[in-house]
Design a binder for these strands. Sequence first.
RNA 1: GGAUCCGUAGCUCAGUGGUAGAGCGUUCGGUUCACAUCCGAAAGGCCGCUGGUCCGAUCCCAGCCGGAUCCACCA
Length: 903
Amino acid sequence: MPEPLPPQYQPSDHEGPIYQAWERAGVFLPPPRTEGEKTFSILMPPPNANGSLHVGHAVFVTLQDLMVRYHRMKGDATVWFPGLDHAGFETQVVFEKFLEKQGKSRFGMARDEFYDATMAFTKENSTTIINQFRRLGASADWSRLKFTLDPDVVDLVHQTFVTMYEDELAYRDVRPVNWCTKHQTTLSDLETKDELRTDPLYYLKYGPVIVATGRPETIFGDVAVAVHPDDERYSKLVGTEIEVDLGIEQRSIKVVADEMVDREFGTGVVKITPAHDPNDFEVAKRHKLPMDKVAIDERGKLTALTGPFEGLKVEEARGKVVELLQEKGLIDHVDDTYQHTVKVCYKCSRTIEPRILPQWYIAMNRLGTKSGKNLTQHALGAVNDGRTKFVTERFEKLYRHWLDNIRDWAVSRQIVWGIRLPVWYCRCGQTTVRVPTRTEIIFLRHGEGEHNVQGIGNGDPSKPYHLTDKGKQQIAEVVEQFKRDGTTFDAVYASQMPRVQETAKLVAESLDGTIITDKRLNDIVLGELEGQPIEVLHKQTDHHMKSVGGSETFQDVLARIESFVKDRAMDEVQPKRILIITSEISFWALRKVLNPDLEPTEMRTHVLNGETHSFSLGDLTPCSSCGHLVVERDPDVFDTWFSSGQWPVTVPKTTGHADDYERFYPTMVMETGWDILFFWVARMMVFGLYLTDEVPFKQLYFHGMVRDKDRQKMSKSKGNVMDPLAVIDQYGTDALRMALVFNTSAGNDMPIDEEKIRGMRNFSNKLWNISRFILMNAGGSVGTAIEPQTEADTLILTQLDQTIEGATHDIDTFRFHEAAQRLYAFVWDDLAATYIEASKAQLKDDGLAESTKAILIHVLAASLKLLHPIMPFVTETVWQQLPADTKDSPLLAQASWPQATHD
RNA sequence: GGAUCCGUAGCUCAGUGGUAGAGCGUUCGGUUCACAUCCGAAAGGCCGCUGGUCCGAUCCCAGCCGGAUCCACCA
């Protein structure tokens, strides 16, 4: 007889060990591939790697885990791909706040320094959040975890952009963009929100007319006024130039006629400020007006164009400008009741300043010149013909409506944290878009040579200056260091110089590499100066800046090195790390190639024999037109959704399992919140279809947002957030999961409060005590067949069958809350309240006891199975207590989904 | 200006073309050998309003009222 269970279920005693048991048994890994297998794959919406667990994560983990566990039990080849998102702008905003608290700013940091700091911050958060997901019971295959900044993922993202560029779907254009003056970056249309405001509308005396404006401080950027073509009031002015008083200057500006003007608004005259208003920009474009009058800079401060107002922030300037205009009698009157919406940054709520800037865009509504694909039409088509289905259908309408009205997507961001654009601008005017090489060069200066000891120059490879003993020793030490660090090389390049060849041989012997001799790495040719003391050489040639007696100049060496580097940057098969062994002057040239702005004096840093340095070639590329190496790489990074939008394609291609893509793409279900329908879901459809001609997922399921009990959105500032970990500590993961499933129907927001979770904790305990009763009364090994003998027996078995069928159907049709409610009712009402009560008498009846025991165990086992996808921990814990011969698998997580019997 | 959703028990929400459901709350009663994180019982609803389709509408349709949300370049 097993020990009776304690009278109360203590989740914290069991959850950790149970989860470990699953991981140890490899429960979460998909089975080996078999012929004709039925697969089930889900991609986890990658959580931002910048924060900790919130209840929204708990919702999606619960629902996805439910599906995954269900399909695993049904015997499908199941995999749940987990991931983490670098969440570019979001993370940078979080991290900048963190820096601010330490009195730092990203604008005072070098790009690399800031990037590395953010990476460290992100990595730290990543491990935390993954472990928190484990506590939620997530049965994801963690061995397949991917991060959006993994190099192989980045390669694919770059490749997509290159493909789109060649297809003329990615293009650069100069046009007004949404600019946040705090974060100093462009934002997409989705990253701004509207604020309703009441602001004064100023009616300005403007030469012969009166114009209405809400932004008098932009007056210095005015280049014209516009009226409606049919407006007779102003028809005689159209085409003329008028003299206007701007307070600080007189300006002569054009009067143009344009349909954009609303005759009813204000006076029917609009002043045109192309640099600071998208509409005005369009007008200026149509009428070929100048666009270069910029009154506000990237920090939201007025420029020199505004004379005395230079340096003032927009808000301050507005009042001061109004004062000036007032003094000069230029304000006709002011309307204080003017209501309008203002675009603000969705993160910091500062007013968006439109600016005219070059940015990269994705053309949403154009035919690719190579692919012949139209991004929007494909994304709509796949939904129209049912290749992807929506649960619930209402989101399909929103999806359509959004795509029907979409504009081109600005994808470049002026931030650091993210995937940098693979774009270079050559001085010849050419733009090169190419997947950057990941080749890394390790430079090694040869060991001490005999000429070094003598202090003379040697540039002729036929002269026999060999490595000294000390030189050999230096190289031996370098090799040791490589070995200690586990550094290996895909190729070793060496110049022809004997000391270099000897060095290379020593390295290659120990590291098992092939030496490729390349004379472009040779020392500088000295001509008549061969063998002269170093000081003499430098003096006569002015540090190799001029040629003396047939000697090479530094420029000659530079050209050789540049040519060598260009080949490496173009390598078809891209080695990850190559070693080049050469001499000091090549090192200088290498630095200059990678950083052309270096002055000769900065460039000529001394390098010791046997010293190493590493260089990354990723930031340069050969120009696709003139062939020169280009280092002017676009500093911008991609909108984070540009990479996450490709997630369903990139993940299965980069897990390290060659057939994952073939087996598991398209994924079966995408489960996510409706709040990212446009940001993410629509873009995954766009990219999936563009890249693979297949939909990225066959089913879309949207869950609602979790609200507090007063239907308020949870937010830190309101202080009404629920910490899932605190809930788990107190009530157990299963209670949280059951409460979340129980209270959600697709697409609808769900209010959750502690009462509901407590109720489900009670349910876990109920299940526990049902098990306790059954194990105490029927816990021994039971071999009896299921033979209903009483009405109660028949009833419970019928109810069980109905529950199995119902729950299976509910889950298959994404009605998870109905499954939960059905199971809750079955376990509590049918099993506990009715059958167990009836069984108490039956167990005392010798004629009925054995069959009753068998039925109790049978119903319990089936109930555990049915509840396992929702409440994995308590069910598995009890399962471990069941007699072995009642189980089809030692772990419930690997047991089979029950089938209705139908006698 | 366009679009979408919601209105069902005191609260929060499910649900269905045929006699209305759950959780929590409320009231009353229970120290029985699985569980007081429990057990038993009860009260509580013109399913927003008005029309239409139908043998029949809480459900389908139209309009209205009330609430929420999303999208959109009005100086």
